[in-house]
Design a protein around this nucleic acid. Sequence first.
DNA 1: TTTTTATTCGTTACCGTGCACGATTCGCAA
DNA 2: TTGCGAATCGTGCACGGTAACGAATAAAAA
Lengths: 358, 358
Amino acid sequence: MSYIFSTMDSNQRITIKDIARLTGLSKGTVDRVLHNREGVSKKSYAKVMKVIQDLGYEPNLFASLLAHNKKRTVAVLLPNYNAGEFWELAEAGLRKGAEAVHAFGIEIHRIGYDQYNLDSFHKAAEEVLAMNPSGVVLAPMFKDDSFIFVRRLHEKGIPYVYIDTKLECGGYLAYFGMPLYQSGYLCAAILTDAHKDVQEVAVVRVQRDKHGQSDPTIYRREGFIDYISKHFPSCKMRSVFIDPKKPEEIDGILEEFFNLHPDVRHIAMYNSRIYLVTPFLERHPERNYRVVGFDNLAANLAGLKNGTVTALIAQRPDEQIHNAIGTLSDYIVFGKAPAKRDNFVSMDILTRYNEEYY
Amino acid sequence: MSYIFSTMDSNQRITIKDIARLTGLSKGTVDRVLHNREGVSKKSYAKVMKVIQDLGYEPNLFASLLAHNKKRTVAVLLPNYNAGEFWELAEAGLRKGAEAVHAFGIEIHRIGYDQYNLDSFHKAAEEVLAMNPSGVVLAPMFKDDSFIFVRRLHEKGIPYVYIDTKLECGGYLAYFGMPLYQSGYLCAAILTDAHKDVQEVAVVRVQRDKHGQSDPTIYRREGFIDYISKHFPSCKMRSVFIDPKKPEEIDGILEEFFNLHPDVRHIAMYNSRIYLVTPFLERHPERNYRVVGFDNLAANLAGLKNGTVTALIAQRPDEQIHNAIGTLSDYIVFGKAPAKRDNFVSMDILTRYNEEYY
DNA sequence: TTTTTATTCGTTACCGTGCACGATTCGCAA
DNA sequence: TTGCGAATCGTGCACGGTAACGAATAAAAA
């Protein structure tokens, strides 16, 4: 049960020159046939095709790529960030990815937009289209407008890869992200772990504006709710809304809310901003809240260390970006489609005991 | 927050010819410097190095590969199989992988061995070493001898990738397989799911011979035992041993064993051969055994369909092989190390209700 | 100084494909 | 038959890097 995978018997690969010799034609004509270019007589066409079929010609990828010697660009469309915010974590992966594909003549252009400002997304999207890239990596934070955007990419034949969130319509080359529903489920499991009975949980949420933003956290919410209602059917789930853009209001809102609901001992947050809650938690150590959030931002890790945050569920945004760029490059340069379309990164559970090794 | 990743300001990549021109030397000398070949004066060496540093030269991979124009071989060292056995599932992935890397001038040689015969492994290993491959994919079924084998690969500088099982020593390029401990844990969870109390479970096992075979199922066993003893501390775990090479004995052994232990209602098996048990199960439908096994062999799926097997935990051997070959090829051809060293495939739970969509 | 040997370097012919340019052939009408 | 445009085809260079070959120079021996 030993054998060799090989398309031909001879161990020497056949080249264009071989075909030319065998057909009595020239390289140029063979090349025209191979690329379906005009200016070839039917007879010559048939002769070349026959040899190709018989001997199983396949072009030398390296020679072809060298002859083209194209420089291509890949646009990466991501939200801007301030220091310490989620998208900063992706930056290292961007850099690594750019390095990795640079050898293939691919240049990475990062285009930023304000994830709370639709106009800025429009401008960024236009910029991407204007540069006519060979591929696009994007985090589709604005649902409807991202949809329009990727449709235009599709029309121009530009492959695109989703990061973090994806839109539920076909056409994308790949997706890299966390399994969102499961992450919400896991969040609830960690939050209530080792508790026989939980009567009330609170979720700190961010009020989104109206512009049809794609909110990945709704899937987390579903998973979270499913777990809670399965394991603690009588548990009440309360939401309190805060606005990250008005940090001065947050403490007041939380104080008021938790005074109103003094029995709550479990707090979760679906996005990466649990650090907005830690100042409140630090002022009430006696209440012993059990707190679970997402993502290993520096500020969140500080919450783990000082004991206000019980656990974080982390993904690896850098790895996601890195893989996204790699997949896109393989497709652009070699025409290799990815093995899996939807690629889920692992969900890493961080506590004060393991965070420093992450 | 938009920027371009680029190692140099000019958008034109620098070539060997550029360096030659700038140093007043020739391409040949530059090439000698780049490859640390002898025959270059210190002065010339320094001149070239300076330009390389200043302008940030990096070679064109495609041109280099074209110039070398090597044909390389990758050896895939796997157990032989009879129709319907586990390793047959990997074959499709082998073929796909071979096709995918063929464009890079890599030829896949499959070398088979009998997983129950150490001598045949030795012969196969020698064959691999004799062909001096550029890389090796292997399933290390014989622990000690595989260790010796990979050490020899290591000495020759040949990279290797583990499939299915791995040896717990460094040096391998990557590993693709199922998380074994977790799969055993999961197996126990499925087996006892929805049961408040389980007093007795049976595991059908295969007696291995003495030759220090690497038995991946021991890790499954650990996970299985951990789950059971955590959730059902008083549960008794019984083992019954069968020999796949003597199928005519099996039914008798099982009849005897289960007559001796009439209270057993849960049966598990750590390897892919649960189909060996189905004939027995078919004769005792009234006992309503709950049965969990591994891998989607056709014979196992038949067990799902006729109701004798409750669930199967499947991996995707074809995908594992495919990825292993791809990883190896990326490393050999482009020098790209894999993103992750240990790559776990998902554990897919198959029941009679979802198996046909797998 | 001349001859020999060692060191250093330039020249050149590839690797296989892409493509522009110019050459050749063909069909058809004058 | 000649002429002429269109169809068809061959030639040759480019892409960037590799490495064998031998030429030129420097160092050592005579």
